[in-house]
């Protein structure tokens, strides 16, 4: 399937994955991330249940410690 992540088009072999799985594949720590799925902000408790399907748009931001 094709999805858009942070403005970039991404092709995935899976037909369906959850937000939790996508974050893991990007190595993003779930507890310090904020995710918008098709313009809707997703609560952390819902990452594992929320499914991403073909054509979806995601914005992923996360906190960074350094400075």
């Amino acid at each position: 399937m094709n999805i858009q992540v942070n403005g970039r088009r991404i092709q995935l072999n899976e037909h369906e994955i959850t937000i939790g799985e996508l974050l893991e594949s990007y190595n993003v720590t779930k507890r310090i991330s904020v995710v918008e799925h098709n313009k809707e902000i997703i609560k952390k408790e819902e990452y594992e249940q929320t499914k991403i399907t073909n054509g979806d748009t995601l914005e992923i931001v996360h906190f960074v410690g350094g400075g």
């Binding site: 942070n6 403005g7 970039r8 904020v34 995710v35 914005e59 992923i60 931001v61 996360h62």
Partner: peptide, 20 residues
Amino acid sequence: EMVYFDVWERQSSSVEVTKL
């Protein structure tokens, strides 16, 4: 909005967080 960018990879993203 919370903004995130990678200046090397030329990537950026913003999320409106007020709802949280």
